[in-house]
Computed example of a mutant assay.
Amino acid sequence: MTTGIVAVAMSDDLRHRLISDRDWDRLAAVAEVRPVPDAAADPGAVDGADVCITGWDTPSLPFSWLVGGDRPVLVAHTGGSVRHLVPAAALDHGVRITQVAAVLAEAVAEFAVMSIIAGLRDAVSFATAMRAGESWAALAARPPGRLLRDQVVGIVGASRTGRATLRRLRPFGCHCLVYDPFIDDVEAAGLGAQRIDLPALLRAADVVSLHAPVLPETRGMIGAAEIDALRPGALVVNTARSALVDSDALLTAARAGRVRVMTDVFDTEPLPPDDPWRHCDGVVATPHIAALTAETLRDQGAVTVDEVLRFLAGKPLEHEMSRAAYDTYA
């Protein structure tokens, strides 16, 4: 006996990557599961569903479905940001949302720390030179890297990912600063960091790692003046969103050799083959893969299915997004 209808509004390819056969069977055991591989072409396919499972290729959900029923529906997102799927007004009408930001944070934080260490040790440049046949003597004569233990690392944003990054930095013994207007000195100390304002962080940090959400208040928060304030040779790591930064100013600084950049996010994605971000010597660019691991994909699907089963059984959700959190989440 089924207890509801679950629409799965994502492409077949993405559905198979995220939802294992076991998790699909768990859903099908308690609900009528309705695949919707092209929700843009058939938005009415979610009508009557109690739950809609969404992915990063899901278009905005029909407002009529979100608020038109006689009981609240659940949007169960297999990614992080839900702003493109559900308008704030829908939450005011009782729509419930769950998402897997906590799962994604673990992978992104690991990638951020990897980027910090690789950037400080100039690992990519050394590997590229080795492949190009540079002599051993010339390689040995290059400037040495820097030890993470002796660096000041500035974390911009005490988000889930920012906090997970701070946890992973603790064993290295580096001095961590954190900027976030929503935490106080005591909370920052509990995270192993010193709370500081953004201008002071940018002046003091050897490494600046971005973990803030994109909100009206944070868009462009690292502008040309902020980039000019960075310490010479500072490393900027961005695994969050490119909209936090004046990309042109940052690229100019990297080209001039004033800063080095490890970035996983760009103003235009996919990044065109001729884009200058791909070809700047002071930049290591990766194709928005910080959260992309085989284990994370599996966990995204499993945690989402767990939440759907809780909802259908009338149990509390573990990853529900509140109305207040919606306003401060990317």
Rank of each mutant, 00 (worst) to 15 (best):
residue 148 L to F: 02
residue 150 D to L: 08
residue 150 D to G: 14
residue 151 Q to M: 15
residue 151 Q to A: 15
residue 152 V to D: 06
residue 153 V to Q: 05
residue 154 G to K: 01
residue 154 G to I: 00
residue 154 G to R: 00
residue 155 I to G: 09
residue 156 V to P: 09
residue 158 A to K: 04
residue 159 S to H: 06
residue 160 R to L: 12
residue 161 T to A: 07
residue 161 T to H: 00
residue 161 T to M: 13
residue 164 A to E: 13
residue 165 T to C: 04
residue 165 T to A: 03
residue 167 R to D: 15
residue 169 L to S: 05
residue 171 P to I: 00
residue 171 P to K: 01
residue 172 F to L: 04
residue 172 F to V: 08
residue 174 C to E: 02
residue 175 H to L: 11
residue 175 H to T: 15
residue 175 H to R: 15
residue 175 H to E: 14
residue 177 L to W: 04
residue 177 L to S: 08
residue 177 L to P: 12
residue 178 V to C: 04
residue 178 V to P: 08
residue 178 V to Y: 06
residue 180 D to P: 01
residue 180 D to N: 00
residue 181 P to W: 07
residue 182 F to L: 12
residue 183 I to D: 11
residue 185 D to F: 11
residue 185 D to P: 14
residue 185 D to A: 15
residue 186 V to M: 11
residue 187 E to S: 15
residue 188 A to Y: 01
residue 188 A to K: 00
residue 189 A to L: 08
residue 189 A to P: 03
residue 190 G to W: 06
residue 192 G to Q: 02
residue 192 G to L: 03
residue 193 A to S: 03
residue 193 A to L: 04
residue 193 A to W: 06
residue 197 D to W: 06
residue 197 D to V: 07
residue 198 L to A: 12
residue 198 L to S: 07
residue 199 P to C: 10
residue 199 P to W: 14
residue 199 P to V: 14
residue 200 A to Y: 08
residue 200 A to S: 15
residue 201 L to I: 06
residue 201 L to R: 06
residue 203 R to A: 15
residue 204 A to T: 15
residue 205 A to V: 00
residue 205 A to C: 02
residue 206 D to I: 10
residue 206 D to S: 02
residue 207 V to K: 04
residue 207 V to I: 06
residue 208 V to Y: 01
residue 209 S to A: 11
residue 209 S to N: 08
residue 209 S to M: 09
residue 209 S to P: 06
residue 209 S to V: 07
residue 211 H to F: 06
residue 211 H to R: 10
residue 212 A to G: 10
residue 212 A to P: 08
residue 215 L to P: 11
residue 215 L to Q: 05
residue 217 E to F: 08
residue 217 E to V: 14
residue 219 R to D: 10
residue 220 G to S: 02
residue 222 I to C: 00
residue 222 I to Q: 00
residue 223 G to M: 05
residue 224 A to K: 13
residue 225 A to C: 06
residue 226 E to V: 07
residue 226 E to T: 10
residue 227 I to G: 04
residue 227 I to M: 07
residue 228 D to W: 02
residue 228 D to F: 02
residue 229 A to F: 06
residue 229 A to P: 05
residue 230 L to G: 00
residue 233 G to I: 02
residue 233 G to W: 10
residue 234 A to T: 00
residue 234 A to D: 01
residue 234 A to F: 03
residue 234 A to Q: 02
residue 237 V to P: 05
residue 237 V to Q: 05
residue 237 V to L: 03
residue 238 N to G: 13
residue 238 N to I: 12
residue 238 N to C: 14
residue 239 T to P: 09
residue 239 T to E: 02
residue 242 S to Q: 14
residue 243 A to M: 10
residue 243 A to W: 03
residue 243 A to P: 11
residue 244 L to Q: 04
residue 244 L to K: 06
residue 247 S to D: 11
residue 248 D to M: 09
residue 249 A to K: 03
residue 249 A to H: 06
residue 250 L to K: 00
residue 250 L to I: 02
residue 250 L to A: 01
residue 251 L to G: 09
residue 251 L to C: 07
residue 252 T to P: 00
residue 252 T to N: 06
residue 253 A to N: 05
residue 253 A to D: 10
residue 255 R to S: 14
residue 255 R to Y: 09
residue 256 A to C: 09
residue 257 G to S: 08
residue 257 G to E: 04
residue 258 R to D: 11
residue 258 R to L: 14
residue 259 V to P: 02
residue 259 V to F: 04
residue 261 V to R: 04
residue 262 M to R: 13
residue 262 M to F: 14
residue 265 V to M: 11
residue 266 F to C: 12
residue 268 T to H: 12
residue 268 T to I: 13
residue 269 E to S: 14
